[in-house]
Amino acid sequence: MVRFGLTVVRHGETRYNKDKILQGQGVDEPLSATGFKQADAAGLFLSNVKFTHVFSSDLLRAKQTAATIIGKNKFCKDLEIKYDARLRERKYGVAEGRPLTDLKAMAKAAGEQCPAFTPSGGETLDEVRERAKDFFEFLCQLAVEVEQKEREMHGAASRSSGTSEEQSVFPWTNHCSQPGLSSDNGGTSKILDANILVVSHGAYMRNWIGYFVSDLKCTLPENLTKSQLSSVSPNTGVSHFIIELQSGSRLEPEIRCVCLNQDSHLVDVGAECVAQKVF
């Protein structure tokens, strides 16, 4: 069995986020001062987690967030961040650079509702989901290859015994409603073949999580409401998943959501943490 951790973080705030202006892919804004503070807070929150791989959208707001998070990490300061266009925000076409209210007006004029409405030149929700699916399958293959390489190098016996220095200190047990994770209940204290950090965008992440839930039957925290599931993550919100691939197969992975859009690290930042539901 291949088992890996996946931590997904939304980028920090930009001035366009604050002003409720759509960025999509065509507006490449840097983080605001608040956005950097949020990224710092997320980095401290994740500072004791030993990541094996880091991926980020190649848009500036995500790149800056990923670099800040890794810069705060106790184990991974020198880990290479790999940029991937598949992690970009949903493309909003003619609505990019315009207020969110304009998108809503476009949708109303077309007799549709956000977020299902696709402005001219934009991506459909299905197209975004296909990007997310393609990237997730890439991660699964990556985890399989890492496990195979580890097995070849050290053998099954030495790997199964594990070593204490390979363990990460995960913060979710203190901040999420899930019971404390342990090796007895399939939690994060078991050896992971890979532990992957991904930094991306709000609408993209919501579609990705929707794919996990609707297509892959991801197990969710018991107290998660439908509203929480449909909402976009706050800036630098953290979601964590454990993925198991039976017999190294990428087909029908078992996914458990440990926490979704975690934002306790933002309490002292002083930023508005409630994201707009349409994007």
Rank of each mutant, 00 (worst) to 15 (best):
L6W: 02
K104E: 14
Q167D: 11
L139R: 11
D28Q: 10
G187R: 03
D19R: 09
T52W: 02
L139F: 08
D263Q: 10
A203V: 08
A107Y: 04
S182H: 07
Q276S: 07
C114S: 11
A203W: 03
A33F: 03
L192W: 04
W172K: 02
Y16M: 07
A203T: 10
I70C: 00
Q64N: 04
L251W: 08
E130C: 06
I70F: 01
L216E: 01
E112M: 09
S183N: 11
H53Q: 12
L216Y: 04
K20H: 15
P234I: 06
V94R: 05
V94T: 14
V2N: 01
C114G: 04
H201K: 11
A203H: 12
L266H: 04
G202R: 02
D193L: 06
S247M: 06
A62D: 03
Q25M: 05
G26Y: 07
T173H: 11
S230E: 14
A95T: 10
S177P: 08
S56Q: 03
D19P: 01
L197A: 06
I255A: 11
A33Q: 11
S249C: 08
L251H: 13
D58A: 04
C114F: 06
I255N: 09
E254I: 12
I70A: 01
A132G: 15
V278L: 03
T68L: 00
Y204D: 05
P119C: 11
L251D: 15
T236G: 00
A143G: 05
K91I: 13
H11A: 00
R151P: 06
M153Y: 07
D28I: 05
C76W: 02
L224I: 15
K133P: 11
L224Y: 10
I209F: 13
S56A: 07
S249D: 13
H240M: 15
R86I: 08
N48G: 12
Q38S: 10
G97W: 01
